[in-house]
Simulated assay, not measured.
Amino acid sequence: MPRHELKPLPEAEHFAIAIGWDGPLATFYAQVLDSAAEEEDQEVLWEGTEPYQYPEPHPLIELLRRYAEIPDGLADDLKGDAASAGDAFPGRAATAFVAEHSLPRGTDPAQALKLFQVLDRER
């Protein structure tokens, strides 16, 4: 799963901030964890946990602007990561599970076809 760690803004320096691509869920994701919390790395923000939730990185980048410095070209880098990593991890049981349970939610016929192909390979 490609992941970019972002540099926190001065007022958010106790946060760990990441954005990336989750292939099996076919979505971009963003995380902000509070490393200063009493509990270990308490979740402040975690988006992109549902199949197909964020097909583009831009909304997540906007969410992270209040916590982190956003490097130039981040959206393009993320799109490149997604293209390179793909949308499945053949051979992993979770891929078939996610594919099977997310097919009705898919909005892209090509994506649904890919997920059917994953299911066929996994069985």
Rank of each mutant, 00 (worst) to 15 (best):
L63D: 05
E56C: 05
A16Q: 12
Y67N: 14
Y52L: 04
L25G: 12
L33F: 12
H58I: 01
E62I: 12
E47R: 15
H4K: 13
H101D: 02
R105K: 14
L45D: 01
F15H: 15
F15R: 11
D120A: 11
Y29E: 07
A30N: 03
D34G: 01
P8S: 14
F28K: 03
D81P: 08
Y52T: 07
G23H: 10
E39S: 10
A93S: 11
S35R: 08
G23F: 01
P57V: 05
Q42R: 14
P55G: 02
P57W: 01
Q53C: 03
R105L: 15
H101S: 11
P57F: 09
G91L: 03
A112H: 09
H101K: 14
P55C: 08
D120S: 10
W46R: 08
G73Q: 14
A83S: 09
K114W: 04
V32A: 00
D72Y: 11
A110L: 15
L45R: 05
V118Q: 06
G48Q: 08
V44P: 10
V118R: 02
A16W: 15
L74V: 01
L74Y: 10
E43S: 06
G48D: 03
G73S: 04
T49N: 14
T49S: 13
L74P: 04
L9S: 04
R123N: 09
V118L: 11
E5P: 10
D76V: 11
H4S: 07
F97I: 08
A96Q: 09
A93R: 10
D72F: 03
H101R: 15
P51V: 05
Q111S: 06
R121D: 04
D77Y: 05
D76T: 04
L25S: 02
P57G: 04
S84C: 12
H101G: 14
D77C: 00
D22S: 13
A26Y: 07
A83E: 13
P57H: 06
T107L: 01
Y52S: 03
D108M: 03
T49R: 15
L119N: 04
E69V: 06
E5W: 12
W21I: 09
H14S: 04
P8D: 13
D77R: 11
M1F: 08
H101V: 05
T95Y: 05
P104L: 05
G86E: 09
F15C: 12
L60E: 06
E56H: 07
K114T: 02
W21F: 01
H4P: 00
G80P: 10
S35D: 03
S35I: 00
E5S: 12
P109T: 12
A93E: 14
D81F: 03
L113N: 11
A112Y: 02
L33E: 04
D72R: 11
Q31T: 13
A30H: 07
P8M: 11
Y29I: 10
L60V: 02
D72Q: 13
Y52A: 05
D34E: 07
G73A: 04
D87A: 08
A68L: 00
S84H: 14
E11K: 13
A36M: 09
L60F: 03
T95G: 05
Y54L: 09
A12R: 15
K79W: 14
D81I: 08
A99C: 14
R105Q: 15
D41S: 11
T27H: 06
S35W: 07
T95N: 07
L60Q: 10
S84P: 01
L74I: 04
R66H: 07
G86R: 08
M1E: 00
R92N: 07
